[in-house]
Amino acid sequence: MMKNKKTRTLLYHGGIWALGFLMIYPILWTIASSLKPESEIFRNAASLIPTEWNWGSYAQGWEGFGNLTFTTFFINSTFVTTMVVIGTLFSSTLVAFGFARVNFRFRTPLFVCMIVTLMLPQQVTLIPQYILFHNLGWVNTYLPLIVPAFIGGIPFFIFLMIQFIRGIPRELDEAAYMDGASTFSIFWRVVLPLTTPALATVAIFSFYWTWDDFMTPLVYLNDTKLYTVALGLQMFSDPSSVSAWAPMFAMSVVSIVPQLLVFLFFQKYLVEGITAGSVKG
């Protein structure tokens, strides 16, 4: 019996590591390429071990462009992303609670409107939106990047929260309502604490999407001092002439670190959800 359990554990971990290697292969490849000399990246592409360790790419990449280093990009990205995460958490929880728990009129048509906005490709709203922001004088500021998060610009998160809130037993609200709690305090004290795993998910996604997005900052930011990491990465590459591949891979690796840290931090709350979720169903 004991032995059986041990083999099962071994099998579990062994299987996960085997599959896991496939999962992290791309990142291993990127790290390996960032350490190869330029002349080896594509000639010796299949190998994960450089013949010659070239740490210089990290320094060369970080130096960036002219006076503009990745320090600037990281500060900018951190600021923008933090604001977007806060904004998304703020708007998605409030709006989702409204849709999931409050029985107001026009709820369904408005919900449909929200879902429909998900279905129009960004490419065709890009230009009208640019003109709108341009006329508001928001171009070349962070406002077009941050403000949409606060006003529920990504319905994905609202919909996600709605689904989670609908999964929470209504008896809890009703009990609180009997005790004379206001709708807002039901939201704040009863529902919100029970959605911790969902909140962690929203935080992880909105962080990653914002961190990774280059189209929005590219279109709305002109001053290079405002550029974000994703833009910085893209500035190494020019297929019509010489691309700086090794520094680009190096900076790609560095830019993944904050994402991993954020993930590691928030995924703890996925675990803690166990206790929160088990509050008497």
Binding site: F65, G66, L126, F214, M215, L218, V219, N222, D223, T224, L231, Q234, M235, F236, S237, D238, P239, S240
Partner: peptide, 11 residues
């Protein structure tokens, strides 16, 4: 100066 990579330049 405003500069970018090739990707997205024309957008």
């Amino acid at each position: 100066p405003e500069f970018t990579g090739w990707d997205g330049y024309w957008e």
